[in-house]
Design a protein around this nucleic acid. Structure first.
Lengths: 196, 196, 196, 196
DNA sequence: AATGAATGAGCCTTCATTCAT
DNA sequence: GATGAATGAAGGCTCATTCAT
């Protein structure tokens, strides 16, 4: 004789989790992981400090959950782009997708860029992020390889760095960064085969 | 019986400052700014905690000093590259200089990449870093402008992002990143006018 | 359509209480009272945290219930030993009974020895334990008095301390403690009158 | 150019350590280890909470220091009793020494009896206490062996338990426990050879 | 009867910084 | 210049208990 339907229970719980994650993401993104206290997260989510530990094992677990959620989403987005298009076309689609992903998840990427540069924080995250980066690199490499370029791996690295660097510029100052124009410029640059 | 001349005094003081900065840099780079305690810095430098405050106003001041020193060095390196070469040549020299600077000051750049992504830490640093970035961008923009490219600002942004992204990859895993090859590939890409 | 008779109700309730007590005893005994959380007890008993408060007023009430149950049992065991035997015989029976009680309720006595030595915890228990100890002492004193020993109270104290100390040794390491032999040795020591 | 003599420094530091230990012992003894907070210890010692961590690694380290100090003292007291006396005489001296030690270090023994009965706390203490107990047992066993008793080990165990049990009674209520009389009674009991 | 989400106080610990010496 | 003892605030986390359902 549960006091609530199991389903109600589940969905309420999930909703609370999501609210905590949203608050944490906003704060992590604005202040950084280390400067954000559990107190703040709970306050922002409108719950008591202790309750957070009913949903997450600790502060680092909140971070981990944020990463898992987003890494997963990104990988799925990328998989959805696989297809039988000509490789150059695929490449351009990947490029646009990267910028779109960052644009749509600005807060998360601000956080991610911060965490990625802090080995100590990164270490507590498991091997997720490097593995994810590996996957993206491989995905980008494939079209170059298919196109027959001499150093597809280096090409992928360069393209990845370019997108990454631009995304960070955007993330640091979205108001003043002309993301669309820059994205267009990058895509244009990869219009010809072989790319420049 | 004056124990030291004023000059000796000064240089001894400067030496102590530098030792503290070196210790701080090593630790900040390895553990991150937040995870490094003043106690650790003093310990690594072989001095007492209290004495550090004789040389610096606080932990954030140590960070600021590290940035000032490096920003200053980098700007001077860049100025030294100005000249009457053809713009394309100048561009290539800038590119190589950027990679060289990161390679030679790996610890600092690891720290810088971490700090840059943490707004809260960055805020305590004054407006130094954004201003510096602005200068680099302007420097890179000039050759593109001279070359008569339609969007020199965007070109500069793209080149900067590319160098930045690659440098970060290198900083995260210097052992496995083929910095020279990648640098060559980037330079090659900017051999032609207009660049690809 | 009364779902249960009142008696069924009662006995089901009693059964739940006993299951909680059993879980609590196991945990208190193994981890100590302070290191055992209500959450653990409920988990071990297979019920929710909140429900525990339906059966007991709080954590300390669980402890109190455990003590009441055991103190009561022990006193009844002792009363059953009263009789018209010669005092020396009675004494020996008491001694054997003490060891038997500890052996049969090892978990409880481990807990009791821990609690007894912690005044703060003991305080929350009411005056039960000292009173109980008083009763045991009096019971042991009586045969000595009947035998005409000069200091029956001191004799009782000594015998009680001996049993107590040995029982604690046993409780701390039951595997390696030769309880039976030691019990025999103690009984043998009290065979003669006056006891040694 | 140390600001103080090294010796001054050392002795001041040692004095602070001792004051903290004294405060901790008083509180541990009165409230138990678990119920005593670091705040309380610091407050009782008249220092700030943080300073305690300048002298001890943590709460458990304070406990460990208390035990090391006392275990060491007790063992030295015991060694001082070794000698060429007849074994029965030595035995009586040991017995008196045990009671004297407890009487003189009442607070510590109250703490020790509490800790000994709490496996979880005991575990954080290293193997000190069991080893110490072993030594005492061995020391007590030797005279029985020399006297040619059939089961010297059992004899030692019994004597140890007796002293232990009585000491605990004393520790629980020193005002009303006739320690001297009881000690005399125990010694008297071991006057004859073989002991009764 | 039964759940478990929710609370708030408290825990141990770390830290940047100050200050007497 | 140099020390390190000392502070006070904050950190992450646990827990007994309450309450809406």
């Amino acid at each position: 004789m549960s006091p609530r339907t199991e389903q109600q229970q589940q969905s309420a719980r999930e909703e609370s989790r999501q609210r905590i994650l949203a608050s944490a993401l906003a704060l992590f993104s604005r202040l950084g992981y280390e400067r954000t206290s559990v107190r703040m997260i709970a306050g922002e989510a409108g719950i008591s400090q202790g309750l957070l530990y009913n949903y997450f094992a600790g502060k680092d677990d909140v971070l981990k959950a944020l990463f898992e959620r987003s890494m997963h989403d990104v990988l799925r987005s990328f998989e959805a782009l696989h297809g039988s298009d000509p490789p150059a076309e695929r490449l351009r689609r990947y490029i646009r997708a990267c910028f779109a992903i960052v644009e749509e998840n600005l807060e998360f990427w601000r956080l991610a860029y911060g965490v990625r540069a802090q080995p100590a924080v990164l270490a507590g995250l498991g091997a997720d992020l490097p593995a994810w980066e590996r996957t993206i690199l491989d995905t980008l490499e494939e079209p170059f390889r298919t196109l027959g370029l001499p150093h597809p791996q280096t090409e992928a690295r360069i393209l990845f760095a370019l997108i990454d660097g631009l995304s960070q510029q955007y993330a640091r100052d979205p108001e003043h960064f002309p993301l669309r124009e820059v994205a267009d410029a990058v895509v244009a640059r990869y219009r010809e085969t072989p790319p420049p």
